[in-house]
């Protein structure tokens, strides 16, 4: 496989267990943008501890799908239940889900007017109501984890793209989420920075975090994911465990997509 970011390290799988508790349950979910049918009859169950990679051509609705999970986008029919809370227009439920679900964006979306440390403590202080000192300790803990504690007092503009994305991951982790969503976290990065972000994500997976990643990093998918979901035209076309998915794709659309992305 000619993947430039093939994962060459040993993965520690001791904590990567899929439990039989349901984390996210999506049933018959549909979404329209005006008259355009973006998501069609999505059914999906995510267990705690699962690491799912969602891939598909651009415009296939994969970003929209995970943005529905923390209600950045509203769905029009069907049901999304996150950790036992159903997403409706009830603000309390939305708040609850959002504080349980962390999200990492393609363009990092760090707050440029706040220092790295302040970026990480903002939500814990104002949403979780944690004392400032405690929040800062947590923040430093996670910044050490993503290996940039020394940048804590700088501003986002002074960091490289890879560093910014790692800060964004740390910022989400500071809320102690049970589920992490990744929306193409590496596609705005220069090639040499992709690896550092993927390494951080792998470490997260090794700790047993439930993860949904929209990404085209197939090396990451093979090394870490326990399931790969392929989407096209707003629907789930194929899903399988990684080895089967890459070596023995069933649908013609999947085959076409894989041949394009892997450059065969």
């Amino acid at each position: 496989m000619s993947d430039p970011h093939a994962i060459d390290r040993e993965i520690d799988r001791s904590h990567m267990q899929v439990s039989d508790e349901v984390a996210i349950q999506i049933t018959r979910m549909n979404k329209w943008y005006g008259a355009f049918h973006v998501l069609r009859d999505i059914n999906m169950t995510v267990m705690k501890g699962e690491r799912i990679v969602i891939c598909g051509p651009s415009g296939s609705g994969k970003s929209t799908l995970i943005r529905c999970i923390n209600r950045l986008e509203e769905h029009q029919s069907g049901q999304i239940v996150v950790d036992g809370t159903e997403l409706t227009s009830d603000l309390k439920n939305i708040d609850k889900v959002r504080s349980e679900v962390g999200m990492v964006f393609q363009h990092f979306n760090l707050f440029p007017h706040l220092s790295i440390l302040e970026n990480c403590t903002l939500a814990p202080i104002w949403v979780r109501k944690i004392p400032k000192r405690e929040a800062e300790e947590t923040a430093m803990h996670f910044l050490e984890k993503v290996k940039i504690p020394e940048q804590a007092h700088k501003y986002p503009g002074q960091l490289s793209g890879g560093q910014q994305q790692r800060v964004a991951i740390a910022r989400s982790l500071c809320m102690k989420p049970r589920i992490m969503l990744f929306d193409e976290p590496t596609s705005a990065l220069d090639p040499e920075m992709i690896k550092e972000v993927l390494d951080t994500m792998i470490e997260l997976a090794e700790e047993g975090m439930t993860m949904l990643c929209v990404t085209h990093e197939m090396g990451f998918a093979q090394a870490v994911a326990n399931r790969v979901v392929f989407m096209d035209q707003g629907q789930i076309v194929e899903q399988n465990e990684p080895r089967e998915f890459f070596n023995n794709p069933q649908s013609d659309r999947t085959k076409l997509f894989l041949s394009q992305i892997l450059g065969h």
Partner: peptide, 25 residues
Amino acid sequence: DQTNASAPFVRREMIAEQPAPASEA
């Protein structure tokens, strides 16, 4: 049905575009 979490799944027929519900237009 895909409720069974990690069972392999392949869609053979694509779902056609549906009109948005009346409350959405």
